[in-house]
Design a protein around this nucleic acid. Sequence first.
DNA 1: CTAACATTTCAATTATTATTGAAACATGGA
DNA 2: TCCATGTTTCAATAATAATTGAAATGTTAG
Lengths: 112, 112
Amino acid sequence: MEIKIALAALGALAQETRLLIFRMLVQAGPEGLSVGRIADKLDTEPNGRLSFHLKELVRAGLVTATQSGRFIFYSANYPVMNDLLAYLTEHCCAGESCGEVVHGCTNLENPS
Amino acid sequence: MEIKIALAALGALAQETRLLIFRMLVQAGPEGLSVGRIADKLDTEPNGRLSFHLKELVRAGLVTATQSGRFIFYSANYPVMNDLLAYLTEHCCAGESCGEVVHGCTNLENPS
DNA sequence: CTAACATTTCAATTATTATTGAAACATGGA
DNA sequence: TCCATGTTTCAATAATAATTGAAATGTTAG
């Protein structure tokens, strides 16, 4: 992963509304949530502010938008999330004895 | 992990110089690096700018500073890093079949 | 004690990012 | 077609963060 991509992702997550949305989508699974549903859960309305933050998450590659009828569903982009986690811990401790921990979620619906 | 703590950590990492420093320290292991050494690796000098960014990383809890003689050593705070990774992936896919991935580094020198 | 090195502090400037509110666009059902 | 619903765009303002350069602090060795 290139540093610019990691910076974009981290910058996108470093904001309360967006972090809440992202975690919500990670927990929602690959089907995602509509904007209205996200707004409900945040106890706000699908307004310009929310739209702005969703766009930022998409721009950072952390989230994907798919139109379905009158609704737009946003869902977490798991591979990008995992790449980000890997980037942060890469070559940890220069390979010295250092316990590994399980984090991340592949969500491979169609494992190849 | 509380959201405020996660936001502080993400915000600290969402900046090129700081992300470079953090990864450098993660890779350096628990002994850390002195400010001068960090400056060398960044091809810069131990100036106000570097000091500012180091302080931000400490403020976010991602990094620890320890004085040793005339030098100050900065090192990665692995537990905080792992908590952050866990926070991002928490309750991923609401528990549905969803492959787990290894990321993170405990670096337990004294496992209990 | 003094000089030299390592690092930090501070205030001013500049740059980036978030919020707000109003208006506009798109979609599907009556 | 027309209206209601769902969502986005835009420009202005407000808030937050980064950079710079100079001066100050703390530390050790001679």
